[in-house]
Design a protein around this nucleic acid. Structure first.
Lengths: 120, 120
DNA sequence: CCGCCCTTTTACAGGCGGTTCACGCGGCGG
DNA sequence: CCGCCGCGTGAACCGCCTGTAAAAGGGCGG
């Protein structure tokens, strides 16, 4: 398989449409307003094919270099991304934490909307 | 190489799909939320090819070092894994106890699962 | 010079994970 | 019949990891 280097490759994940080469991300059709770091993080996560990405790998791909001891940049930006995604697509969770392993990107419904009535 | 997801080795057992290198385990397509120890245990068991694994071996492979006298960590984590697997795939039993020998990993149907008020 | 936005750093809190206890139970040998 | 042994299981304890808010630093345009 040849590496797609054309900038018009598009990543579709759930209601998200990401254009890595253009710094553009659409959520349900409307554009997200993301900073460089936020967008890089989104792309790195979206490209992992639903697998878990280690924090070290994320840092290497987005920031470049090695993740220093005690650096919390990733946590902060994961949070910023989550906030923006949650705001753009309420009821969906994309970034899942796997403690000790890293983060996984996959659209899943929020449990916040629990069903009532059919309890038990 | 550009593919962000390495599918090096993947273990398929019943409805389980395990990615040892990523810390990812899927049950019927959905990701399990496992801790480092739980995942290590799952991999160790899944790799045993359906044979019985002695507690000492399990401990050596997952925790490293020798199992100390009176250490119950394995029992606790076997239980945690069972709970999560049972929750993810109701009606199936994967971890079988062989008293005095160890544990065996193999997907088998549970006996008719009816409601029991076994309290505690 | 001022203000805004982005990024990094710092601080604090809460939750999660790992270990250890405690208790219960069934099997087995004495 | 009794006590020991191995295992199941719920819970306490505690340190670390992560979530989150906010301050600090920096670059850029007005």
């Amino acid at each position: 398989m040849e590496v797609a280097q054309r900038q018009d490759d598009v990543i579709h994940i759930g209601e998200l449409e990401i254009h890595p080469g253009q710094g553009l991300a659409l959520a349900g059709g409307t554009a997200l307003t993301l900073s460089v770091r936020e967008f890089g993080l989104l792309v790195a996560l979206a490209r992992s094919g639903g697998g878990i990405v280690a924090r070290e790998d994320l840092y290497r791909r987005v920031w470049g270099g090695t993740l220093r001891e005690g650096d919390r940049s990733i946590d902060v930006y994961i949070h910023k991304l989550r906030v923006k995604l949650e705001h753009a697509l309420p009821g969906w969770r994309f970034i899942h934490t796997h403690v000790g392993f890293g983060y996984r990107f996959s659209p899943e419904r929020s449990r916040a909307f629990h069903i009532r009535g059919t309890g038990r």
